[in-house]
Nucleic acid binder design. Structure first.
Lengths: 249, 249
DNA sequence: ACAAATTTGTTCGTATGTATG
DNA sequence: ACATACATACGAACAAATTTG
């Protein structure tokens, strides 16, 4: 497909002292600010912009480069260019609760329990909770959402002996905080958080609604009661493009 | 290719009360402990083990499954099975220095400066250092190694005005701590650390000696002098399989 | 498992206008 | 007037990643 010079192209001030790519940069910047393209949405292709503005692809790419440097868009080879989403800061502290962390950013948290089951503790769970291997624990798989979009999925483990009714609690209310309160632990503290990166399982990618080729932030956490006794251990993963873990020291 | 039952296979106690996969598990576990396969090395294929022990591939897989659950090996679909490397805990605190963090784990840290250059600050660097955009900053690309293996690669930024000689310092000594000390900042504190996950660039993968299909932990850090003034901002990435960021709260 | 189509990334080359000395 | 450097702009071809059939 060829485009006649200037045919149906938007008016750009050629030779007016302002470089073409700067004008295009400003135009797209304004459109994003105006909400014409919403966060996470795919922008038109470079090809399409080339036709729209009647310029060479290099010129479009120069503008895109600057838009990316300014943090307004994210360019992915083979996929397209996307309007940057505001990344959520997941701030870690001694009182780290999903709901509170999200609310503090003026976003709306929600959760959904996917599955609750009583299982024997494997080596890792046993070590984290300070139990013997094979002791009964309650495993709760949970999806965490922010403004309706999934951002984290993971499994929480609790001693089935200390919290005999927690499976039933969680089945009716996805809040870990309230489930622990009902089990006699009105307050708890985050003891450790270990963070690493890995590729998601197909199931995780599906639940997080993200590509299987994009990595996730994987965490291992331990929460204790005020006496320092572990009450919950969790293995979660976060959609890396939508969340950033922040540590202030 | 088929293998005669028992042909040239190692002696396993069949019908002796110990499941075959447990014997194989133990055998491989001992070999790893004995150092026959070094950390990070690829194990023989399941096919090869099948021939060696004269059992069905399912039996080998059962043993591998358990070895993975025990954290001794890491199975990667399509690539093979690898001896797990001891993951390094990168513990974050107010005084977080690469050298000290590593030494505390009884490992040997070292570093190498890849490139030092004076460049104008882009939006992100300017914001992190509290400078105007376009102000001159010194960018130092550095590789961090533990026991001779690369674990992190990243760029450090310093105000070229406040630290006029830091480029020369870093060119002769890769220690950021000593370079800042020479610039009149004998002590500094970690203010924030932001962590996310992404795929490495080809260059990063090469420097970290890891596959381009495995993700990295990407961090953005800001260090300040005792007065709270930012003195260094850095963007680093860690080989996710070899490092784990640990936050104790 | 493979092939085709789509989209961004890279690298050539060419030409023009502007600022500088 | 001339040489040089630099940013801008265009064109073509190919590489690499992703998606789809």
């Amino acid at each position: 497909m060829t485009v006649e010079p200037g045919a149906a192209a938007e008016p750009l001030a050629r030779g007016g002292g302002v470089a073409l790519w700067r004008q295009i940069f400003g135009e797209i910047e304004r459109e994003i600010a105006a909400g014409r393209y919403s966060p996470g949405a795919r922008l038109p292709t470079e090809q399409a912009f080339t036709a729209r503005f009647g310029v060479n692809r290099h010129t479009i790419r120069r503008a895109m480069e600057e838009l990316e440097a300014a943090g307004l868009v994210r360019v992915e080879q083979g996929r397209g260019t996307f309007v940057a989403e505001d990344v959520l800061d997941y701030r870690l502290g001694t009182r780290t609760r999903f709901t509170e962390v999200i609310r503090r950013q003026n976003r709306e948290p929600s959760g959904r329990i996917l599955r609750v089951a009583e299982v024997p503790a494997d080596a890792a769970v046993a070590a984290a909770l300070g139990l013997g291997r094979g002791r009964p624990v309650v495993k709760a798989d949970r999806l965490g959402l922010v403004d309706g979009r999934p951002v984290l999925v993971g499994s929480h483990f609790f001693s089935a002996v200390r919290f005999p009714r927690i499976a039933a609690e969680l089945a009716t209310d996805p809040s870990v905080t309230r489930a622990l309160a009902a089990g006699g632990v009105p307050d708890y503290r985050r003891r450790t958080t270990r963070v690493t990166a890995r590729m998601p399982t197909p199931e995780e990618a599906g639940l997080l609604q993200q590509s299987r080729t994009r990595p996730v932030l994987a965490t291992e956490t331990v929460n204790t009661d005020p006496q320092g006794e572990p009450v919950e251990a969790g293995w979660s993963c976060y959609a890396a493009g939508r969340v950033q873990i922040v540590v202030e020291t």
